[in-house]
Design a protein around this nucleic acid. Structure first.
Lengths: 266, 266
DNA sequence: ATATGCATGTCGCAC
DNA sequence: GTGCGACGTGCATAT
């Protein structure tokens, strides 16, 4: 084992080419200390829980987070090949001369077992992340803007309420048009598909049954997939093209300074 | 810079406490060689593309994969706080004395910028992963089993075809019952919600319009969410409770030996 | 706790 | 390339 690279405050451990026994000791200590652990090595992975899977030998990066998150990352692909969401427990063992990592979760009952045939590198650090994350231009954001500025959808539209619950789910916007007719609006911040139409349709029907009057249904989206406009018309629904960009200028400008700088630079 | 821990074949580079300039050289080389790169450090992240986001200073793990995948992982949570799917391009720069990582994607046009205020550790390895991944007990698996053994759904059921396309999407199973009536089956391998019912309903209607005869609709699932059975009955559809476990014994037993061992051990 | 719908979803597959 | 649906989806939110 080459136990190398301890930094000034022992904040980062770097252990190279450990034997299974040595790795076990290091990992158990790191898990106890709730460190952020990375293991580079050759392994095979079995999973059983909501489904079952087998991954045969290969070199991957294993990540154990202090909240009980497991990630198994292949050399390519944005999604982990195996994982466990936060709250899992980690156990380390040496079986038949091999390092075995057992990850268990209670609800639903799930297990991931990782058996190492080679341990290239172990890193255990104390990551401190007080950073704050903010997102803009999501569907929620678009809803808020369009609720505040219904004229973007149609002149004379008056909001009755946002997010009204009906039997099959939620209506994004519930309003009355300039002629006093009820209007429900389904908002998508990206290209909308037939699925969105079915959603709007089922909301509309449910509400129609309740109120027993004609109701207009409007799908708001930047664009539609191929057959979707046809389906809309067939069902007597309407389409209003709105780009997320059109909403952007109405978003409350808190904490967006850096984002603006970023945009100017790129 | 402590350039340490090169293994025998220089398969793994470990660089600790690099200056921004040193880090730039190492990373550019590693990117050119399409290595699997991990960077531990303090940084802030801006994203602009389908949405926009800002993440203020904190310590995180950055992963650059050789297929152009970016991951930014906080010390907790299974999901990356920022990311880019495969196909992005990586650029490294030093701006105002800080290491800056620029990740660009063409379609949709997106950019992630990571600015490092501290670089704790850089690791660049040549992961070789020839492993094969197999999953069991998915919805597809369940479909295959139930197509091969329709008697699990109902006695006398004869499959006409699997995955028949109709206007709103795909029908999982299209069959005729013992009395010669048409039957369409929608299969869910988990608890089914109203959405599944709406799906089945829209398929059924579309097919009914086409054939102009009565058609039975059956929803197969291990269980239903609360109001779902009521909705089913209201629409004249049927429910058949089938557990994924019931299908398991019919799954073709290739490459499942290790999985079986695993199950026996846990 | 359960149900419901969004997501920078990602991914695979059919057309 | 686009459309469409599954996913061990994860996740927040509302009941």
């Amino acid at each position: 084992m080459k136990h190398i690279g301890l930094d000034l405050n022992q904040q980062v451990w770097v252990v190279q080419l450990a034997s299974p026994q040595e790795a076990k000791i290091v990992l158990e200590q790191a898990i106890r200390q709730k460190r952020f652990i990375q293991i580079l090595g050759e392994n095979h992975v079995e999973y059983q829980g909501r489904a079952r899977s087998v991954l045969t030998e290969g070199e991957r990066l294993i990540i154990l987070k202090r909240d009980g998150t497991l990630l198994v990352h292949k050399p390519s692909g944005v999604e982990p090949v195996n994982w466990q969401p936060s709250g899992a427990t980690f156990k380390v063992a040496v079986k038949e001369g091999k390092l075995v990592l057992l990850v268990n979760r209670a609800k639903p009952r799930e297990t991931v077992r990782i058996t190492f045939t080679k341990i290239l590198l172990i890193i255990a650090s104390n990551l401190d992340d007080p950073g704050e994350f903010s997102m803009f231009l999501t569907e929620e954001e678009m809803q808020r803007v369009l609720s505040a500025h219904p004229e973007l959808i149609e002149n004379g539209l008056r909001i009755i309420r946002r997010e009204r619950q009906v039997a099959p789910g939620f209506i994004d916007i519930y309003a009355r048009d300039s002629e006093g007719r009820l209007v429900i609006v389904e908002i998508k911040c990206r290209r909308a598909s037939r699925e969105a139409v079915l959603q709007l349709q089922s909301y509309l029907k449910s509400l129609q049954k309740e109120t027993d009057t004609h109701i207009r249904g409007i799908l708001v989206a930047p664009s539609l997939t191929k057959g979707t406009l046809g389906l809309l018309e067939q069902l007597g629904l309407e389409f209003r093209k709105i780009e997320p960009q059109q909403c952007y200028k109405y978003i409350h400008q808190t904490a967006t300074r850096r984002l603006t700088e970023f945009t100017e630079n790129e």
